[in-house]
Simulated scan of single mutants.
Amino acid sequence: MKNVLLILLMFLVGTSFAQETDISVHDPVMIKEGDTYYLFCTGWGISVWSSKDMKSWKKEESIFGRKPPEWTQGVVAGFAGHMWAPDISFYDGQYYLYYSVSAFAKNTSAIGLVTNKTLDSKSPDYKWVDHGQVIQSVPYRDFWNAIDPNLIVDEDGYPWLNFGSFWGGIKMVKLVPDRDKVAEPQEWLTLAKRNRSDSLLDNNPGDGAIEAPFIFKKDTMYYLFVSWDYCCRGENSTYKVVVGRSADIKGPYYDKEGVRMDLGGGSLVIEGDKNWAGIGHNSAYTFDDKDYLVVHAYDVKDGGHSKLKILNMNWDENGWPVVDKNEINP
């Protein structure tokens, strides 16, 4: 009887902590399947969370666990499986998740793809299938960095992958309809960048801190969100989100002042304060006719830990996004 009570107590304690309302994440992206929201973010094997209400979150098994795909060893020797900045979308009966493999502070990087018929781990159809590398960046060969992917589809139904961190800024490339490789003939674009003082011929990230693109379509306009300045420094992080827009998915994207983002433009959407530092690496969604901006931010009052923030996104009279860092939804 004592053992039964002990097991029951352990179950109840475990259950009470199964749902968390204050979760630590980096680079969050989200999607909804049925009545469940799924959150994917940077972590070992790609971290996964689920929620019914965007308030209480349950930790799920990671996609790859601690064993990264074999192909990643050809990108970063000894790669241990800490994968960065995923992107999730749904197409033709499958979920497409892009993810980043990289050496730190180098453009020794690649973006891979996995697919699944469902996100419900209890379903018999639940199985992640790895499709390998989609694009790769190599130091001294490429003046861009193959991390922070985001998929967007144009008016003709063709998929485009935008991505990038530091170096020459935010790039975009057209993919084949199956979304697993670059289309031929290749079409590459620069969407946004910042000035940098470093030589164009080195493999240093430089001081033009820009990364984490996410394109969100609202009515007839495409909005390009990017993060400026520095992530991952706890309460000293200076990350902020800026935006520009275009009627053409391929740009150019202009900020509120009419400055092109590929010429250094970008209008501030949100930045840190004395309570929340380094707000950035956003994604944007419409769920049940409401728009949201999803970010991570460093909680100054909690030792600078990175936390999930889901913000209501409204629009001003000129069609620009407006968010309040204190207005957490729902």
Score class of each variant (00 low, 15 high):
84 W>H: 04
75 V>L: 05
168 G>A: 13
86 P>G: 08
144 W>E: 06
115 T>A: 04
154 D>Q: 13
105 A>F: 11
105 A>D: 12
150 N>R: 10
130 D>G: 05
104 F>E: 10
121 S>Y: 09
157 G>F: 02
112 G>F: 11
115 T>G: 02
148 D>G: 04
91 Y>M: 03
109 S>K: 06
142 D>T: 00
94 Q>P: 03
107 N>H: 09
155 E>K: 15
159 P>D: 06
99 Y>T: 09
72 T>M: 02
114 V>E: 03
70 E>M: 12
151 L>E: 10
135 I>L: 05
135 I>F: 01
152 I>H: 05
169 G>R: 05
136 Q>M: 15
116 N>R: 02
143 F>I: 08
142 D>M: 00
82 H>K: 14
145 N>F: 11
165 S>W: 01
143 F>M: 10
105 A>Q: 12
168 G>D: 14
163 F>W: 10
77 A>C: 14
75 V>K: 02
139 P>I: 07
76 V>C: 15
168 G>I: 08
99 Y>S: 08
76 V>K: 14
101 V>K: 06
169 G>S: 08
95 Y>T: 00
140 Y>H: 13
114 V>I: 07
73 Q>G: 07
116 N>M: 05
91 Y>N: 03
143 F>W: 15
93 G>L: 05
97 L>T: 04
99 Y>D: 08
120 D>V: 02
112 G>R: 08
121 S>G: 05
109 S>M: 06
99 Y>A: 08
130 D>M: 05
99 Y>I: 10
84 W>L: 05
69 P>A: 01
129 V>M: 14
138 V>K: 15
99 Y>R: 09
166 F>L: 11
95 Y>I: 03
137 S>E: 06
153 V>H: 04
83 M>D: 02
158 Y>W: 14
82 H>Y: 15
156 D>N: 15
136 Q>F: 12
70 E>N: 12
129 V>S: 15
164 G>L: 04
143 F>R: 14
155 E>M: 14
119 L>A: 03
78 G>F: 12
131 H>W: 13
111 I>L: 11
138 V>N: 14
94 Q>C: 06
105 A>R: 11
152 I>L: 11
79 F>P: 11
165 S>E: 01
106 K>V: 09
168 G>C: 09
142 D>R: 01
104 F>M: 10
148 D>Y: 03
147 I>D: 06
100 S>Q: 10
79 F>N: 14
82 H>F: 15
146 A>G: 05
106 K>A: 12
77 A>F: 15
152 I>S: 08
113 L>N: 01
137 S>N: 08
168 G>E: 12
110 A>Q: 05
141 R>G: 07
112 G>N: 10
101 V>Q: 07
146 A>Y: 04
77 A>L: 15
113 L>A: 04
78 G>Y: 12
114 V>T: 05
84 W>I: 02
169 G>L: 07
102 S>W: 01
105 A>W: 11
96 Y>P: 00
137 S>T: 11
128 W>Q: 15
97 L>E: 04
74 G>Q: 13
84 W>A: 01
136 Q>C: 14
92 D>C: 00
137 S>M: 07
151 L>K: 08
163 F>G: 07
